[in-house]
Design a protein around this nucleic acid. Sequence first.
DNA 1: GTCTATAAAGTGATAGAC
DNA 2: GTCTATCACTTTATAGAC
Lengths: 180, 180
Amino acid sequence: MTTRAEQRRRTEERILRAARELFGEYGFDRTTVRMVATRASSDAGLVMRYFGSKEQLFAQAAAIPADGAIEGSPAEIAEQLTAALSAKLAEEPAAALAALRAMFSHPEAADEVRKAMTAQQRQVADQLSGDDALARSGVIGALTLGLVVSRHLVKLDGLDAAPEELMAIAGPLIEELVTG
Amino acid sequence: MTTRAEQRRRTEERILRAARELFGEYGFDRTTVRMVATRASSDAGLVMRYFGSKEQLFAQAAAIPADGAIEGSPAEIAEQLTAALSAKLAEEPAAALAALRAMFSHPEAADEVRKAMTAQQRQVADQLSGDDALARSGVIGALTLGLVVSRHLVKLDGLDAAPEELMAIAGPLIEELVTG
DNA sequence: GTCTATAAAGTGATAGAC
DNA sequence: GTCTATCACTTTATAGAC
């Protein structure tokens, strides 16, 4: 039994998934509403009707799910950070990749990413000791960003290794950055 | 005394500089030929006439100057890598930033960056020992990319510190990655 | 509810006047 | 050599037919 409301919800979900994939692959400007509609087996007019504008569609598709709170002893912080990074390397976080790819040409996407990263970074910096705590947490963010982008988006040489192998290399770096 | 050839050379140089700035600031798609022409105090028709197409203009503006060869003992390699990174953090490499920003939405730019990074990475990997040499050199590349992008493009929190402070943190990481 | 047709605006590229 | 005028095309967004 499919009510109209249910049917609509499914169509919206299909559109959102298609939008995430395409924004992640081609960025904001090169992804057209028509492309999204086609991949979702729908049409452009309907996409506009449901989401209002391409901008709003992007905002919903590229909303980055917040990581859990980071807290505890330095060792615990390091472990939570490495676990979060490991997950981001192993899977392909579609919404985050869409936001990451788009952020370089779409200022609103840049704000979204900066907001998500700053929130986590502040938590970390507050719990680190040393007067270079802010810079150290910044380098942690840059390393994380660099690894995720290099692996999933740029597909840089050497980063197609198994997540475990990469973490065996990057994990100690993060520990070092946390302890100072 | 300004010959016509000389005058033309100067106009081309103005256009290239304007193109580098704008491509670096807005990316490929959002930078229009008209914008470049206006900033260079010229006009769109002339830009097309000199460079043939927007694509060719970008290729010339975003050509990444190759870093010097990397070689020597592990300690020397580490020193050359940190010196190159330090330079990239201190200055704003306009052509490289244009290529970096554009690479996420413009496949040709992605190839340009990947080519430049792979060349350096291969050199490094060949001289590292250990069976994870390729992955380690990949992480070096990802860290470098992450730091440059986070500082100059994303303007991430904590990365506006003085280059010396950042290098005091990142330098040891690179040494560690080189020695294994 | 879904889709077709079209409007309005802006793009890269070109032809040709001065 | 330089610049104006315009072409052909594509985009988002909307109005209205079924």
